[in-house]
Amino acid sequence: MTMLSLRNIWQLCRKEITSLLRDRVLFIFMIYACTLMVYAQATGTSHDLVRASLGVVDEDRSALSQRIIDAFQPPRFQAPVMVAPQEVDRAMDHARYTFVLNIPPDFQADVLAGRGPEIQLLIDATAVMQAGIGGNYISSIVADEIGRFLRRDAAAGSDAVELKLRVAFNQTLESTWFTGAMALLQVLNMLAILLTGAALMREREHGTLEHLLVMPVRASEIMLAKIFANGGVILSMSLVSLFVVLQGLLGLRVAGSVLLFYAGTAIYLFFAAALGIFLATLARTMAQFALLFMLVQMPMQLLSGAFTPLEAMPDWLQMAVQLLPTKHYVALTQAILSRGAGLDVVWPEFLAILAMGAAAFAFSLIRFRDFLSQQQ
């Protein structure tokens, strides 16, 4: 690349940044997406059980049953409410309780006698995620309290086994750290496609694309300028999102190198911006571009592993998503930010994103040249 090409790209980058800053609506949306949108998604989509409503039918009235009831404490559960057996169905029908625990008569006596009594747990699974998490919590609490009660009793064996948990990387189990980081990735991908595509659509609608065609610049220089300018602005805004929103407001503890994370982000933005230009060459209006964006953005996010584990997908789909740069970017981000991985661990993801980004740029450049030739 010659000095003239670099000078052309620099001047076109300045034009792109100036045009973006003058578009107040788009600029305000970008600020909103990198701040309030990330924060709202991190705090509004919780994978934790918080203040779940619990009703208890205590037909035993024993020390063990009271011990189990007392174990349900905030912030996971609201204070347990005693319910009469004949009121359970009506209470569940009116959604008063998400969970109802029914402790049968003679429960403590049957436990001490080793007769294996059963406790019934009724769950309102309308909110399926909270129902599943809460059911596991309640089962664990009941089993733990029964185990402690038996170990206090002389009948407890001396060889009882106690399970010790050791949580790695996110010891406090803060779900907002995970959802916040994944929300940032979603916003970066969205902005990279939207801004570069909108920049090209804006050139066409304002009639300035014809001005570029008569200038002594090449298609590759125009495309690189749009990618570098918009990608640079997005990268700058992501710094604000990481340090102000994720670390400042949500308390995210970055385990790895921030510079390494942003190196991977810059490579991924190169791919996403090239994709945005490609979609803009297919659309004739901004409305068509928005529809194409939704058609591409949603599958990329849903299949990236950001919110759904790849292991939960069918085998053929797991193989197919290996061709998505978004999958590798999510893996790279989780490894660096959460597990403190270095380049020796994440270099395959870097290489995959770089190769896919180069292929996307080459393919988009061919389409972009055809697009410019049609405008002449």
Rank of each mutant, 00 (worst) to 15 (best):
L21G: 08
R22Y: 11
R22W: 10
R22H: 11
D23Q: 10
D23C: 07
R24D: 02
R24M: 01
R24L: 02
R24F: 01
V25R: 06
L26C: 08
F27E: 03
I28T: 02
I28W: 15
F29E: 06
F29L: 09
F29G: 08
M30V: 14
M30E: 11
I31N: 03
T35H: 01
T35W: 00
T35M: 00
T35S: 00
V38E: 02
Y39C: 08
A40D: 07
A40H: 05
A40R: 06
Q41E: 11
Q41S: 14
Q41M: 13
A42K: 00
T43H: 00
T43Q: 00
T43V: 00
G44E: 03
G44W: 01
T45G: 09
S46E: 03
S46L: 04
H47I: 14
D48Q: 03
D48M: 03
L49H: 13
V50F: 07
V50T: 01
R51G: 04
A52Q: 09
A52D: 06
A52H: 06
L54R: 13
L54H: 08
G55N: 15
G55V: 05
D58C: 15
S62L: 02
S62E: 03
S62M: 02
A63M: 15
L64S: 05
L64P: 07
S65L: 08
S65F: 11
S65H: 11
Q66K: 11
Q66L: 13
Q66H: 11
Q66S: 10
R67E: 11
R67W: 10
I68C: 02
I68P: 05
I68F: 03
I69C: 02
D70A: 10
D70S: 10
A71W: 04
A71D: 04
A71F: 04
F72S: 13
F72E: 06
Q73M: 13
Q73H: 15
P74E: 14
P74D: 10
P74L: 12
P75K: 01
R76G: 06
R76N: 06
F77Q: 14
F77C: 11
Q78N: 04
Q78A: 07
Q78C: 05
A79Y: 07
P80Q: 06
